[in-house]
């Protein structure tokens, strides 16, 4: 012991075991799915502003459908991660408005309802072949095309705070200093744009090459700036003792180092190069490959960022 522990160092010789990861993979999946859900709406709005809907024949039904599916995944894992899942209703019956969890849950629920309405209308009106012929909901939706156009601006507007509120939850999690950063807000936004463009790339096979070029541009910009922000966090972690101690789980090697860099290369560097190249020459297969990689890498990056601050002993 004498040779390993210096006089200036202290060692805990008796304590209770402390909990390790409290918010685990379910919360990572929750954030990842929400990025796709809100990102599809935001990027879809950009595309519909830039191009005629005829250039993207399936966007009016596929975009809200993607958002709906991933928002359901997001809410499902939000609820599943609760230790008392059925008490989630308390957020609506006993709301505490200083909590970003409460504000976020209300906004996300409203967002889900609006996206559901858009999906019903989009599917009822425009899904080729009308597979839900006997369905009363889609029959109702097929007559409400004007409502779709009225709802969409509100949904786009709401997608922004729904994207960002998780950063506020992390900001309120004052025990985890790595998350106490304004950059978290922008990181959430870039993640949504990245995941949204990636999800739309996967359904853009019959779109015009101009629309796909715009998707490649959004993916390239989002991966570039997101990567830059992660690098900033990686190299500037000495801003606080706790931040530095947290980043040691990445800096010092080990599984989080591997996951972090795998996420950075798979999810940000490679997709950026492919998407950047696709802005000049349209290659659907490569762009799809970039989209899938960016979704995998984004999950890994979020997973590391969520878990490492929880490894630090707080007391």
């Amino acid at each position: 012991m004498e040779s390993t522990i210096h006089a200036t160092q202290a060692v805990v010789t008796l304590d209770v075991p402390i909990p390790q990861i409290i918010w685990g993979w379910m919360i990572t999946l929750n954030m990842w799915a929400k990025s796709i859900g809100t990102g599809a709406i935001l990027v879809g709005a950009f595309l519909l502003w830039r191009h005629k809907k005829e250039e993207m024949p399936n966007i009016r039904w596929a975009m809200p459908l993607i958002a709906l599916v991933f928002l359901i995944i997001f809410l499902f894992f939000t609820m599943t991660d609760l230790h008392q899942p059925y008490r989630m209703i308390n957020i609506f019956t006993h709301p505490h408005w200083t909590s970003a969890i409460t504000v976020g849950a209300w906004m996300a629920t409203l967002f889900l309802i609006l996206v559901f309405l858009m999906t019903i209308i989009g599917v009822g009106q425009e899904l080729p072949g009308k597979p839900f012929k006997g369905c009363k909901l889609t029959a109702w939706g097929s007559k409400k095309g004007a409502l779709y156009d009225k709802l969409y601006p509100f949904v786009v507007f709401l997608a922004i705070p729904v994207t960002l509120y998780t950063a506020i939850i992390m900001g309120e999690s004052s025990a985890r200093e790595l998350w106490q950063s304004p950059t978290e807000v922008m990181q959430m936004m870039w993640a949504a744009l990245m995941a949204g463009s990636a999800a739309l790339i996967l359904i853009s096979g019959n779109w015009s090459s101009e629309a796909r070029r715009d998707l490649a541009m959004v993916l390239a910009i989002a991966t570039f700036f997101s990567f830059m922000m992660y690098m900033g966090e990686y190299f500037f972690s000495f801003k606080s003792a706790e931040g530095e101690a947290t980043m040691q789980y990445v800096h010092a090697g080990g599984p989080y180092n591997i996951e972090f860099w795998a996420g950075m290369i798979l999810g940000f560097v490679i997709p950026f190069i492919i998407a950047f190249a696709n802005m000049r020459s349209d290659n659907k297969t490569m762009l799809r490959f970039a989209a899938i990689l960016s979704l995998i890498g984004l999950y890994m990056a979020k997973d590391v960022w969520l878990k490492i601050p929880q490894m630090l002993p707080l007391s």
Partner: peptide
Amino acid sequence: ERCIGCAGCMMACPYGAIYMDPESNT
């Protein structure tokens, strides 16, 4: 009785003073 077990408080407490009761799951 009201706690939903989200563990937000465990993330927020800088002193690690909150635990998840294994019997009540709150």
